[in-house]
């Protein structure tokens, strides 16, 4: 369509202006505030110094990334086979639709509801413990809730649909005749998978793990409900500063620290992948 230049400027300019005013400027405000002193409003890097020199914050950052990493791995291990199965092994259209509905419905449900479900399931008298005891895996109920393991399970649950959908959308585009060709040339199914399907699906794995990792790093609701206040991740610290302590500048510093370290980790990850692809 021939959109005349003035309409184009208007149609695109208004949304861009909106994002500038309500997205870029607010992020800028946070970045600027992180260099202010809460007491007198003067300029200072003291907030950063405080984070860098206090082991407590390093601990929170470490825990945040550790949980995010475990969540990403767990979700990949469970999500990939599911994506593979629905793409290649489910023939019935109706069944596929039902499976997709089962995958997407949790995504459309508030993380509070989902974390709440796990709160019930993982408790000392919850179904998981009941089952474990009944099956004689353990003698008495174990502590799952309010541990790192519990947070990882609850977050993996929240992140699983993202991984499945991302990997499935890449798998759909792989030409199945390549697979048939590999089989035709005598490759064992496992070899065909390792040499053909998996390498071709790597973009999906990479994109999916990036999404899951960034979402896990910034997740707030799930860790705060499932930690019971016994474990602290970065998002919880940020929330405390903004909602309880009302120390906006320090909260801003924590937010910037989280954002920057996440971006650095992602950049490093992408760099490694690129090196690997070239080598």
């Amino acid at each position: 369509m021939r959109i005349n230049p003035w309409s184009a400027v208007l149609l695109l300019g208004v949304p861009v202006a909106f994002l500038f005013i309500f997205f870029i400027v607010p992020f800028g405000t946070v970045a600027v505030a992180s260099f202010r002193m809460p007491a007198d409003g003067g300029w200072s890097a003291a907030n950063y110094v405080k984070i860098a020199t206090d082991g407590y914050y390093w601990g929170a950052l470490y825990l945040t990334f550790k949980i995010a990493l475990w969540v990403t791995l767990l979700v990949l291990v469970v999500g990939y086979p599911l994506a593979y199965t629905i793409t290649y092994n489910v023939r019935s259209t109706l069944l596929r639709r039902i499976i997709y509905i089962v995958i997407v419905t949790p995504l459309f449900t508030s993380s509070i509801v989902r974390a709440f479900g796990w709160l019930v399931l993982l408790g000392r008298k919850g179904m998981v413990n009941d089952t474990l005891v009944a099956l004689d895996f353990v003698d008495k109920p174990v502590q799952i809730l309010f541990t790192e393991g519990g947070i990882v399970i609850g977050m993996a649950y929240i992140m699983l649909p993202f991984m499945v959908l991302t990997v499935a959308s890449i798998l759909q585009n792989i030409n199945t005749s390549l697979l048939e060709a590999a089989r035709d040339l005598g490759a064992h199914p496992i070899v065909a998978f390792l040499k053909v399907t998996f390498p071709l699906s790597l973009p999906g794995v990479i994109a999916g793990s990036l999404i899951v990792f960034t979402l896990s790093v910034s997740a707030y609701v799930t860790p705060s409900i499932l930690s019971g206040g016994k474990k602290t991740v970065m998002s919880m610290l940020i929330y405390q500063q903004y909602a309880a302590t009302l120390n906006f500048p320090f909260g801003a510093t924590l937010a910037v620290a989280l954002l920057v370290s996440t971006l650095l980790l992602i950049a490093g990850y992408l760099l490694v992948i690129e090196r690997h692809a070239k080598g």
Binding site: P81, R114, G117
Partner: peptide
């Protein structure tokens, strides 16, 4: 045989994953 085994274990993991997805909501 290896084909069917592979497929069966994939289906097994998938069914467990789907239960994992649906169960907390059903519980609520």
């Amino acid at each position: 045989l290896s084909d069917s085994l592979g497929r069966a274990s994939l289906s097994g993991i998938s069914i467990l994953a789907l239960i994992f997805l649906a169960f907390p909501l059903l519980v609520v």
